[in-house]
């Protein structure tokens, strides 16, 4: 799968581990929640980067206390219609303060990239048809937003009155 990170098609240095594979000592790997729950004590403090894949139904609030262990969280969209990860992304960014890479994996369609970026995703495993130009066009699709979200963009409500809603909250 091509990887779009911060708007660029980049090489993916992360390896997604299958169930039967042993976690290597070297290299950036993404593991699933089941493995983390079983091998937590061994994996804590792993020197090389560690990433976690969460499926729909696996809320990030369940691993809130372990979040500092992960450099990357991948949220799965098994089907584009399954929108649970949009909520998980906002919880990770806005509530749990996760600052690592937040990656969308699964059925990630071009027409959804704008929403995904707004809730805090900064990396996207896209299909072969999606180019950097498509991504840029999607990001520029709407000139304004109504809702405060993880992206921190000023809302229409705030822009109308020349105030930064986000700053006002701090």
């Amino acid at each position: 799968m091509p990887l779009l990170k911060d708007g660029r098609l980049v090489e993916d240095k992360w390896q997604r581990l299958e169930e039967h594979e042993v976690v290597p000592t070297e290299g950036a790997v993404i593991i699933d929640l089941e493995r983390w729950q079983v091998e937590r004590e061994n994996l804590k403090g792993r020197a090389a980067p560690l990433g976690l894949l969460l499926m729909p139904g696996q809320s990030p609030e369940e691993i809130a206390d372990d979040l500092s262990q992960f450099d990357l969280i991948a949220l799965a969209f098994p089907a584009f219609k399954d929108g649970r990860a949009y909520s998980y992304a906002r919880i990770l960014r806005e509530r749990l303060g996760f600052t690592g890479e937040l990656r969308a994996v699964g059925e990630v369609l071009q027409d959804q990239l704008f929403f995904m970026a707004r809730v805090g995703f900064d990396a996207f495993e896209v299909n072969e048809r999606t180019s950097e130009g498509d991504f840029a066009a999607e990001m520029a699709k709407f000139p304004a937003v109504y809702q405060p979200s993880s992206c921190g963009e000023n809302t229409v409500f705030a822009r109308r009155h020349g105030a930064r809603l986000v700053e006002a909250a701090e």
Binding site: F80, K81, D82, G83, Y86, S87, R90, Q112, F114, F115, M116, R118, V119, F142, V145, Y146, Q147, S149, V156, F157
Partner: peptide
């Protein structure tokens, strides 16, 4: 209406 328009979190309920 405005809040719900193109809501990034709630467009795939």
């Amino acid at each position: 209406r405005q809040w719900s328009t193109f809501h990034p979190e709630f467009s795939f309920l």
